[in-house]
Design a protein around this nucleic acid. Structure first.
Length: 211
DNA sequence: CTCCCGATAT
DNA sequence: ATATCAGGAG
């Protein structure tokens, strides 16, 4: 079955009305905390990140104070999130760059964000969208999977999916769409056992496992 | 493409 | 027991 532009627009409308009012799952108090939380969130559940950041931010929640912790103390603090050696190194590198080049403040420029160690396209887009409230579609594992299953935005790489989604979704809805797709992926369009029977999109979804 | 990696869901 | 989790770097 071919997915027309009209069907894609139907999908967008259903997602928009179904996931009205969804908000970020990560807990943060400012752009810097969000940046650190997103770096920690790679291959880790948001629940675990929130437990870890609550404890970490109580001890240190500025670039300078996290730098003071040092590598091994930071590793101990974030170990539960997994990939902790890389993440600790990247967080320290990011904190150092923030202090040296940006006066301890998270830059709003997407290109500057990308220069921070441990910050790739997905993380930079999350910070751009959520912390600075500018239109962006961060393609994480959920968005990538859901967009491809729906054929709402097809692509072999996250960047390709991001571009495909930006074409079909009006710019003013980009940031919201990122949240619709994430929550849809978490609640219904799960990686292992998608709950197609409960899905409001199953009738127009090309990947639906039910009639 | 591979490696990083502990916690959690199934 | 193993697939997956708000990915990024080499």
């Amino acid at each position: 079955m071919r997915i027309t532009k009209k069907i894609k627009e139907q999908m967008i409308q259903i997602l928009e009305t179904t996931y009205i009012d969804v908000k970020p799952a990560l807990v943060f108090g400012n752009p810097f905390e969000l940046l650190i939380a997103v770096i920690l969130s790679a291959q880790c559940t948001d629940v675990r990140v929130n437990i870890t950041t609550k404890r970490l931010f109580a001890k240190a929640n500025t670039p300078a104070s996290i730098l003071e912790m040092g590598l091994s103390a930071l590793e101990d603090e974030i170990r539960d999130c997994g990939l902790y050696h890389n993440k600790a190194k990247n967080i320290l590198g990011t904190c150092q760059k923030l202090c040296e080049d940006y006066g301890g403040v998270v830059p709003e420029s997407f290109d500057e964000l990308l220069k921070l160690p441990g910050v790739g396209r997905k993380t930079a887009n999350v910070v751009t969208s959520i912390a600075f409230q500018r239109p962006a579609i961060a393609v994480d594992t959920h968005v990538f999977r859901v967009a491809n299953r729906l054929k709402l935005g097809v692509g072999e790489t996250p960047f390709a999916v991001e571009q495909a989604l930006m074409k079909i979704i009006p710019k003013e809805k980009w940031s919201a769409a990122h949240h619709w797709l994430i929550w849809h992926g978490r609640k219904l369009c799960k990686s292992r056992a998608p709950l197609c029977g409960q899905c409001p999109l199953h009738e127009i979804c090309p990947s639906s496992t039910i009639a």
